[in-house]
Amino acid sequence: MTEEKRYPEKPEKVYYFGTCLMDLLYPEAGLAGMQLIQREGVEVVFPQDQTCCGQPAWNSGYRVEAIRVARRQLDCFNEDYPIVVPSGSCAGMMRHQYPEMFKGNTDELRANTLAGRIFELTEFLVHVLKITLEDLGSPVKVALHTSCAARREMGVATEHEALLKQLSNVEILEQSRKEECCGFGGTFAVKHPAISAEMVSEKANAITATGADTLISGDCGCLMNIAGHLEYQEKQIDSHHIASFIWERTHATER
């Protein structure tokens, strides 16, 4: 990303966009993200009418269908609060694709203003909330898989790492070819299962080879893909969304 990123002062309130995958598969991670923000003294608003950013259809070429869903999201975030998204992929969609989707259309302005208020969770924690974490957990070795959207579209790979590095009992082990895609790619995994299988198995092997106890990712798509494969292979590796991992290790009452 060549544009200079600008971050606002710490706000009183934020919106939270939970993403459809989290809603159904990782709600506790979604909640953890909200709790992390709330703990920093910021009120989190979760509009109940949110559904999905529209990316699955958009990336499959079904634009009319995608726009219909995306437009419904525009209605949910009318106030001027920052919108925090615990996924590089969905954040990238809303920040970078929405302006394209609604170009030349009556909702263009709304889409553009919304796009400008989108922050991926880790960048929000690091740059806006300037969070400091105290690690209450026991020593653990982790491997971090940063999603392609988080790394390239949102440019927040360093923020993911920075947060984990604040946790004193967490050792990050680096897998080989860590920048490479895990092979999820939404409908790609269904349309081209053989290539996807090849990619996810190599990714999973690289992660197992590090000797890590836990796999962490900031994106549920990758998590579902890699962890699904690790489980299929009956590998003894835990997997966590970065939000729930951080929350559980820094949340006093749970320990």
């Binding site: 506790e28 909640l31 989190v44 979760f46 109940q48 299962p193 699904g228 489980e231 299929y232």
Partner: peptide, 28 residues
């Protein structure tokens, strides 16, 4: 084809929408 090399994803008992309501997060 998803489960040819993966276990099916685990669907949660409750959605994030429900958890957010339960934990008292405002809708507006």
């Amino acid at each position: 084809p998803w489960t040819q090399v993966r276990k099916a994803p685990h669907i949660a008992p409750k959605t994030l929408h429900e958890l957010a309501l339960k934990e008292g997060f405002n809708d507006k």
